[in-house]
Design a protein around this nucleic acid. Structure first.
Lengths: 333, 333
DNA sequence: CTCCACTTTTGAAGCGCTACAAAAGCTAAC
DNA sequence: GTTAGCTTTTGTAGCGCTTCAAAAGTGGAG
């Protein structure tokens, strides 16, 4: 910057003003400085900048699994919102690894970002409390805020489970099966609870529950194998899978046992992942508003960063929506 | 840091040594300092640190499309490699937007990262030259290095196209159709070239070429409609789709026209995206070694960062591999 | 021409850290 | 008891910027 000042024949302070407060510099001089900047290829040093000013315009976002398009949607939503307010978002992929999650939380803290967003691994996280305790605002996405301490944005998973079950019931299914797991996954447990509630509300509908080891395509494959091996009368007529991947695997395996979807069994997934719309039998699913979640979370974070004295920590609860596709279509006569 | 020094009863310099060069500090004193750090909840300021030292241990990675699992794989590979050498990776999603790509390139430059990786939009990028010109090492991934100026890691797309065509020919197809587009996409053009080469090498095999507007599921759907509408004798018996998404859409639509895959038409995709393995008809595809690409690119970058005088800019060319699935399985008699 | 009230520019004090020369402590040999 | 040759600790000069009080410049009214 000193070079620029020299080259333009002004003082250091003036160059700084051109960069941060251009209206305070006379147009003629301002142009001269800008020309020097261009000529010299000067790039301002963000580190020195925020060291001296004590401010930052970068937000760190630690994402549990970037390979899951749901989280990419969230990031996109967050970025849209923060960009409008002059903040940039840097991403870090914790890849479902709690050690990496902590590492990146610390990295962002050492970088003195303005704030952080965290789509956490399942379970409350001590590191978050620590970081917050030291003064960096953190907002949790896809996870409730820890009561009164943190803001959070989450989706009403119970409602989603209920939507799924009610849709199958409305389509005529009477012997439902909920599959997913492990049940200590917060989201899975909640979805099951919602499905249970829906079933209780309808006389004559039964619910069987199968806990799978994971909610992947491979787990769905196993599930399909198990169901396909049963006698037709022992099989459910409606399957609620806790994820689209699980549904996909199950449908695929069931076919090889001659069980047709939707004719012999209705199937609904969860998440509205890219793969659902693109499978050969498009799968009905419960869609989470990822983009909106990102936006809302970003809004909460900026509110905290602004240091609004009226800011009250809160959790925003968004509702998922049913998306109907072929896997629950009423069969043609 | 001054607080820590005071609390531990040592000088500032000693605290710095404990952090950066612990072996130079007597164990007893070192412990005392570490205890104070813990007690005071001190987190070192990375900005001041790298401002003062002129070094950085962060690498910026600008990714063209995080929603594409291929790039997430690359990022993972890069992270694995750099982590072993003490470097952290920060991600930015340019989301196929050239303005955003430049913005993030600049952001990383202002942050004075040690180096950058870039999975670029199609086309050579001026900003990269500018950044490099100012001294920050940049390595391109999924794109060749600009001759002699930049390192790059890319995949042999011509070879991939050849593999795809040869596989279909080996499976008995004689009237091939290559679909993809637009052809000014580097990768698509190269794949086509490879397919052409394979066809030329086999007498009696024809190749028809259809340029699609994009390589999405929707474009595949259109393609399927077009092919499904043709008389059976006018249809190809082998389809090479320039992406898995395109293949998925085409297969789905063809089915509704009564064209079965693989019985009536063999289909191969490209990319080995998650959706390929998980569709109802698992699609054969050409798989790109994303993880390895990330590792190799990271290795090149660290070499440049180290300032190895023997470093020569070069492009690493990796070979894609054929993955056989059901969409090209020889039909049962 | 002076004075006052602005507007514009300057210069220097830090921001929190690293690096490194200089100072202080030790140890062992004479 | 010195001294030389180590090891350990300290103090301070920056790193590149922002900030802000003070200085310099401007212009209009009297």
């Amino acid at each position: 910057m000193a070079d620029v000042a020299l080259h333009a024949g002004v003082s250091l302070g003036t160059v700084s003003n051109v960069l941060n407060n251009p209206s305070a510099v006379k147009p003629a001089k301002r142009e001269r400085v800008l020309a020097s900047i261009r000529e010299l290829g000067f790039v301002r040093n963000q580190q020195a900048r925020s060291l001296a000013s004590g401010r930052a315009d970068t937000i760190g976002f630690v994402v549990v699994d970037l390979a899951n398009s749901f989280f990419v949607d969230i990031a996109r939503g967050a970025e849209e919102y923060t960009a409008q307010h002059g903040y940039k978002i840097l991403l870090a992929n914790s890849d479902v690894d709690s050690a990496r999650q902590s590492t990146y939380l610390e990295l962002f803290e050492e970088f003195r970002v303005a704030g952080m967003m965290l789509a956490p691994l399942d379970g409350p996280l001590e590191s978050v409390e620590v970081v917050r305790g030291r003064g960096t605002p953190v907002v949790q996405v896809n996870w409730p805020g820890s009561d009164g301490e943190t803001c959070g944005v989450e989706v009403d998973e119970v409602h989603g489970g209920r939507l799924a079950a009610e849709h199958l019931i409305a389509r005529g299914a009477r012997r439902l099966l909920f599959a997913g797991g492990p049940f200590d996954l917060h989201a899975v447990a909640q979805r099951l609870e919602g499905a249970r509630a829906a079933v209780r509300a309808h006389a004559g509908v039964e619910l069987e529950v199968v806990e799978t080891t994971r909610i992947t395509v491979a787990a769905g494959d196993q599930l399909g194998e198990q169901l396909g091996g049963r006698a037709a009368t022992q099989r459910p007529d409606g399957l609620i899978a806790a994820s689209d991947a699980l549904a996909t695997g199950a449908i695929q395996r069931l076919r090889s046992h001659g069980v047709r979807v939707p004719e012999d069994m209705l199937v609904i997934g969860y998440d509205n992942n890219h793969l659902t719309a693109d499978s050969i039998v498009p799968i009905s699913t419960i869609s989470q508003p990822g983009r909106e979640m990102g936006q809302r979370a970003a809004a909460l974070l900026l509110e905290e960063i602004a240091g609004d004295p009226e800011h009250v920590h809160r959790s925003v609860l968004l509702r998922p929506a049913l998306i109907q596709r072929q896997s629950t279509a009423v069969p043609e006569p």
